[in-house]
Write a protein that binds this DNA or RNA. Structure first.
Length: 469
RNA sequence: GGCGCGUUGGCCGAGGAGUUAGGCAAAGGUCUGCAAAACCUUGUACACGAGUGCGACUCUCGUACGCGCCUCCA
């Protein structure tokens, strides 16, 4: 498959180091609060990447970390740890906060029907690996100590600014970020932070340099190495990570191992809500609960994510989610035809249509995850199916694996949608009988009864076709 | 202040120099016992100005507006 590689700025064919295995590391959430739709947007896109690699015949080994310590509120390497801040807000310990939101996140992966990552390592459970990595960097002469921690000397890593094409000096011109005056270079970052002298942190560990906690870039380097080795195939993350977090990861990992850290870098663009970036201060952090409370399904949300390309900045609003929900309902109606038994004639040309649909989607997804194109193909399929008045009896042509393929790609749970109950089928049969006897009152009663159960009917020349309301 | 990106019909959103993206919504129509659903049709979209092309919404330059990054961020 092809993917845009931030490293080379080109769309490239993915060639794993040891096919069919392909290793993927994804920068996961910092678990100090509820994730918002923007967070889920990006994670769904990494899930899609894994799905795409699978349908391309590869066997993904996917690591997504859970950051449960170490992110400071600002990157000035000062200030409060997010976990500690969240804990103070909620009157809990940082450990409680991490546990609560960590569990919430992994539960969310299930609710959104994610492919289960091979590993979901937590930063707090890999402190030793992180300390070891700092030791290695220390031995190789990349570190120095100042009063608040051990720092990475970016001037020792000549390629530092290459990845993000940073112009460090230029960037300094207008920015006003305070930083520790003892730092040798403004781009230097903390590997190990010392605990403050005046109070005890909820989360702190002993280390060769003193009690403290790991810097926030360290965990990704340490854990990707542990689970996936010195060089990984694909590293994914939000576009905002390019200039700082990923740049620092590369600096740490490549300095420590002497090997290239990742061959392919996938970055997802952000979504805007009300034409603005999502942030806490704007109060536009919509959650999964908000979506469900408004009557939309999480599958509709997933479909909505696919409606734009991962590399373009896209918009989220309720109207477009409504559109996705309607689109999903049509898709469900088309898929539910597999259970309809009122007629049993199947046009022969459907085989070809199913095949070309699968091929069209396959091609689009493997072409840099072109989901808008894939959905376009899928919609043509839906229109075709819904325009049929002669539909497959029972499993019909749907048993050819098309629905399973859709699920493999999109994760929308189409193949396992249940049939209606026997009682409901009887109601439909009774109504058909009433209609044939021109007992319209009886027919309408039965139709209303079905509607109350969430079943709608389309009367076609060949009989009634049901759909879920 | 520095760097970069974008501006597509009511909304979302692809695309690419000359051929319908797609979806949602809307209007008209077909079908129907009535509905509903479905299907069909329709809308003269490409911010503005100039330039280069036989031809530009698609390339170039400029203008306006918006956005992102440079600060934690998905």
């Amino acid at each position: 498959m092809k993917l845009y590689n931030t490293l080379t700025k080109k769309v490239e064919e993915i060639n794993p180091i040891a096919p069919p295995a392909v290793t993927i590391y994804t920068c996961g959430p910092t678990v100090y609060d509820y994730p918002h739709v923007g967070n889920w947007y990006t994670f769904i896109r990494y899930d899609l990447l894994v799905r795409a690699l699978k349908i391309d015949g590869l066997e993904p080994k996917w690591v997504m970390n859970i950051t449960d310590v170490g992110h400071l509120v600002s990157d000035a390497d000062e200030g409060e740890d997010k976990l500690e801040k969240g804990a103070r807000r909620e009157g809990k310990t940082a450990w409680d906060v991490a546990k609560f939101y960590g569990d919430y996140f992994t539960e969310g992966l299930k609710r959104l029907n994610f492919v289960q990552p091979t590993y979901l390592p937590k930063a707090t459970e890999h402190i030793q690996e992180q300390i070891d990595l700092v030791k290695t960097l220390e031995e190789k002469g990349y570190t120095y100590k100042i009063d608040d921690g051990i720092y990475y000397d970016t001037s020792k890593f000549p390629k530092y600014s290459d990845f993000a094409q940073l112009d460090i000096d230029e960037q300094q011109a207008g920015k006003r970020v305070s930083f520790n005056e003892q730092k040798r270079n403004t781009s230097d970052f903390a590997l190990w932070k010392f605990s403050p002298r005046d109070h005890q942190r909820d989360m702190e560990w002993d280390s060769p340099w003193g009690k403290g906690f790991p810097g926030w870039h360290l965990e990704c380097s340490a854990m990707s190495r542990k689970y996936l080795g010195d060089t990984i195939d694909i590293h994914s993350g939000g576009i905002d990570h390019v200039p700082v977090h990923h740049t620092n990861e590369i600096a740490q990992s490549e300095a420590a191992t002497g090997q290239q850290f990742a061959h392919y870098w996938m970055h997802t663009n952000h979504i805007l809500v009300d034409d603005e970036k999502i942030s806490k201060s704007l109060g536009n952090g919509i959650t999964l609960e908000d979506i469900e409370n408004k009557g939309y399904s999480l599958e509709a949300f997933r479909l909505h994510v696919y409606e734009s390309h991962y590399r373009s900045q896209s918009k989220f609003n309720w109207e477009s989610l409504e559109a996705a929900q309607n689109r999903l309902n049509d898709l469900h109606a088309a898929v539910d035809l597999r259970h309809q038994t009122n007629v049993n004639v199947m046009p022969d040309d459907l085989d070809q249509m199913f095949k070309s649909t699968r091929e069209g989607i396959h091609k689009a997804i493997l072409d840099d995850l072109d989901t808008p194109k894939a959905l376009s193909v899928l919609s043509q399929f839906v229109t075709h199916m819904l325009s049929l008045t002669e539909i497959p009896g029972a499993e019909g042509k749907y048993s050819d694996g098309t629905l399973a393929f859709f699920d493999d790609v999109f994760g929308l749970n189409l193949a396992n949608r249940p049939d209606i109950t026997d009682d409901q089928k009887q109601l439909i049969a009774d109504r058909e009988k009433a209609r044939s006897e021109k007992d319209w009152q009886r027919a309408d009663e039965l139709r209303n009864a079905l509607e109350e159960q969430g079943i709608g009917l389309r009367d076609t020349p060949r009989g009634a076709i049901w759909y879920r309301l």
